[in-house]
Write a protein that binds this DNA or RNA. Structure first.
Lengths: 224, 224
DNA sequence: CTTGACAATGGACAATTGTTCACGTATACA
DNA sequence: TGTATACGTGAACAATTGTCCATTGTCAAG
């Protein structure tokens, strides 16, 4: 855990004073209003005479991997929450909790257009003890089948999934034949990626298209 | 002001099927992507031929006080989460959550006598999905060692323990040699009970006194 | 039969909003 | 001395995006 945060910290280049101000305002605006600010709203807040002042900072923040944006689209930010150093300005003692919907079945659609009708409960996990970012988009799934027994994930387990691009070795929730299943994501350098069941009795391989992978598994919960 | 609460209750007219679909998609899009959808993105999702189909629904949702928007501004939604009444068709609607402290070390006694300093986080689990009683006194433990690998519980896992008398076959948190460990509780009829490690390489048996068993394991949480 | 709520189409308009080109100032670094 | 990074101005452009016009149809309630 400590390792993790320290590693994340290093990839995060230092922001300048001004850049941190901008970033903080963006975060704060979302927190207060429920949606992201437009560039001109940021401009106004800092009394810039030109939107380019904002643009410059946004570009810098993106280059320094602090934020992410969808080019051309309005008010589409994504904060990269590499946890701040010991200088945490937030009252970190308060137990912050992330709220995770439990999906019974998300088989029926595109991964980014999932119908939440399958929600059968909620799971809440303390941030500190699970390494989730506050602005998580995770959900939980009930595992069906034995395809992941070699990864110690069993039928009936609940898996917390975070929607994001997988890396080699990740366990992912994948949409295969209209059903959401867990698979191991394999991508050796250069070669095309594929999915693999983690059960020596079902050593099946699966092709990948962009709609297949719904997210990366981050935790398992099992009732005894 | 009492007006307010009454209004909120009464003004929350029932949404139609379609309206709920729209609302659900909007909510979902936000937690999937981190920002709200544009009207045309909603249109596309539902295969509307005109943005006006969306506009109509948004107006209806606003009139029914389900959402709020900033007119003229892009991707600015605000969901009004008046929890739906008993008419909810969702299975287990009332999301009651139990709050579970994560104890780093409870070796020194009963968990309810532990100083709060031993608490290293909190875990919250929906009652319905985990079968907890509301007036629980559960706590969570980090597993050390491999004594329960045959029960698919591994080093580093987090185990939710409910303090109560065990039954035959239960996995229990047990105080042995001043350390809390997980063991299988065995009590065949008539015979005296004992504890057993769930690892074929450590088939140890342990005697029991009344202070040994601290509670019954009810769930396992593992970070991947 | 009329009225109103609900659902959806089609096209056009205008505001919001992201983006770019050109240009200016500092500061630090080799 | 050049060069890179950070910071900012100014104006114009183009894409995204919300909005409104008119119109069609269904269905239940009064």
């Amino acid at each position: 855990m400590d390792n993790c945060s320290r590693i994340q910290l290093n990839t995060m280049k230092d922001l300048t004073e001004r850049q941190r101000e901008i970033l903080t305002f963006i975060e704060h605006h979302e927190w207060r209003n429920g949606y992201w600010p437009s560039i001109r709203e940021i401009q106004e807040k800092f009394n810039f005479k030109s939107t380019n002042a904002v643009m410059g900072h946004l570009r810098a923040l993106e280059k320094k991997d602090a934020i992410e944006r969808i080019t051309g689209q309005a008010r589409t930010f994504r904060i990269h929450h590499h946890d701040t150093p010991e200088v945490s300005e937030m009252p970190n003692n308060a137990t912050e909790v992330v709220d995770i919907p439990i999906m019974g079945d998300i088989a029926a659609g595109y991964p980014d257009r999932v119908e939440p009708s399958g929600e059968i409960g909620r799971l809440q996990v303390d941030i500190a003890s699970a390494g989730f970012s506050k602005r998580h988009r995770s959900f939980a799934l009930q595992v069906r089948g034995e395809s992941m027994v070699d990864a110690e994930i069993y039928d009936g387990d609940m898996v917390v999934v975070e929607p994001r691009d997988p890396q080699d070795g990740d366990i992912v929730a994948a949409l295969i034949d209209g059903e959401t299943t867990l698979k191991r994501y394999i991508q050796k350098n250069g070669e095309p990626p594929y999915l693999k069941a983690e059960n020596k009795f079902y050593p099946e391989l699966y092709p990948i298209n962009d709609l297949t992978v719904q997210g990366v598994a981050k935790a398992v919960v099992r009732s005894i």
